[in-house]
Design a binder for these strands. Structure first.
Lengths: 246, 246
DNA sequence: GAAGGTCTGTTCGCTGACGTACGCTCGACG
DNA sequence: CGTCGAGCGTACGTCAGCGAACAGACCTTC
């Protein structure tokens, strides 16, 4: 399959004005993102930021006892490594590839040059864009907290499937129930049951690690309000990019 | 009681270099923060930022069915209204005073002037400080999500008491169990039971809306890892301020 | 075509939290 | 001093999700 990679597949890159885009693009390096690959480990200083194109990255917190929970998810709408320009250089969680694909990598130092660039008064498009994206990410995290508190596993699975679907070109995700359980921070059996409900209802089919979404509309109807809240906020804050579900 | 208010009671303000501190302080306005007062409503454009001194503010998400959950808490270590400098101007949650006190208020416009100020290359202390604080806030939100997923109400109550205690000068909080339940997103009865456990164990006493912490060390021993993770991250990211528990 | 590992389905008892309901007690206020 | 309401205690059945254990189905490998 011919696959013409381009940094423009990432919505943040694409939203940059030509001049800034060119300056950055010159230093971007295309890297493959195999499933399960760990981009950052908890507490370790980050060296690069990643602009996913076809890959999806999960921000995962791993507890002392080995349990885990997904904090947020980043695809071609965003950037992995916000701690670099936020100034902390590290975060107490792990960034792991949830869906294989590619991303463009950029040394943190080079990003910072552009981030801090301005004509006297700050006006850099990158600065503006990254901060707004970070606010959207904050919303996603906040909503994850709320969802974990109040909503059922069935609803959360719907939300999770939609989040992934929004960041993929197809309606099929390569994902075992075990992995989904790790992301959601629940038991594998719980996912089996919830996914079984969705399959019986005809919303999805799955088969040994391949989930196909058949009826997106009904999936949206079945999820909790959290999905829509986050999506609206992404669209409000990052208006230049195409809608996520393209 | 004589109470000499000063912007310096807020750690972010105090951490500013003299020049920038003076420029900001000139426009700060001391405002009382009565219990339950709503600073921002969900989705409404913010006009001011608030630097709490003695008050504590909760960021609360309110669901369509009226249920709620606390996303994060801000006291004299931080600032309320990060959406202003992040560029979104609003957030899909409510900011409400959880513990009465005071704060210094500043029009968002004036904050932005200083935030964007720089000598050619960005070097403003305020810019740097606010972004690092925001990263700490992100950590708090992420950890809230994890905690909601994996830890018991008992542990979460301990964590919540400690978070509040860290932002107060005394070891007594004015707080009914009903309010705590709203913050944690659980039933009032659940809080009654968890608080009863703590009281029987001699860690706290409470009486009609007044909770006194008797044994902070054992409270820390009883909470989950989430509390320590967040606290460490605040200390790492905001090294200039005095430790929270002063 | 046999073996072994991966992925999914199902079961059972258990527990933490929910929803509901009712009753008590302290304290403010008339 | 009595009333009334806010704040807290308790109890019951229900339920979602947990932990552990096991079985079947499928794929890969040799």
């Amino acid at each position: 399959m011919l696959c013409p990679h381009s940094p423009q597949q990432n919505h943040l890159i694409r939203a940059l004005p030509p001049e800034e885009g060119v300056r950055l693009t010159a230093h971007l390096e295309l890297v493959p993102m195999p499933l399960g690959h760990v981009l950052y480990e908890s507490g370790v200083k980050m060296r690069h930021v990643y602009f996913p194109t076809t890959a999806i990255v999960s921000l995962l917190y791993v507890l002392e006892d080995g349990a885990s929970a997904e904090i947020a998810v980043v695809g071609n709408e965003g950037i992995v490594g916000v701690a670099i320009f936020m100034g902390g250089d590290a975060m107490p969680n792990r960034a792991v590839v949830q869906s294989a694909g590619h991303a463009y990598r950029l040394p943190g130092q080079l990003l910072m040059q552009e981030f801090n660039r301005s004509g006297g008064r700050r006006s850099g498009a990158l600065h503006h864009l990254l901060l707004r994206y970070t606010q959207a990410l904050i919303t996603q995290m906040a909503q994850t907290a709320v969802c974990n508190r109040h909503h059922t596993l069935d609803q959360q699975l719907c939300r999770w499937l939609l989040l992934s679907l929004d960041r993929l070109p197809t309606n099929e995700l390569t994902m075992t129930q075990e992995l989904i359980a790790n992301m959601l921070g629940v038991r594998r059996e719980g996912v089996t049951e919830a996914a079984g409900n969705l399959q019986r209802a005809g919303l999805i089919t799955y088969h040994r690690g391949h989930i196909t979404v058949l009826d997106r509309a009904r999936l949206e109807a079945r999820t909790c309000e959290c999905y829509a809240v986050v999506n609206k906020e992404y669209e409000r804050l990052l208006p230049t990019r195409t809608p996520l579900r393209t």
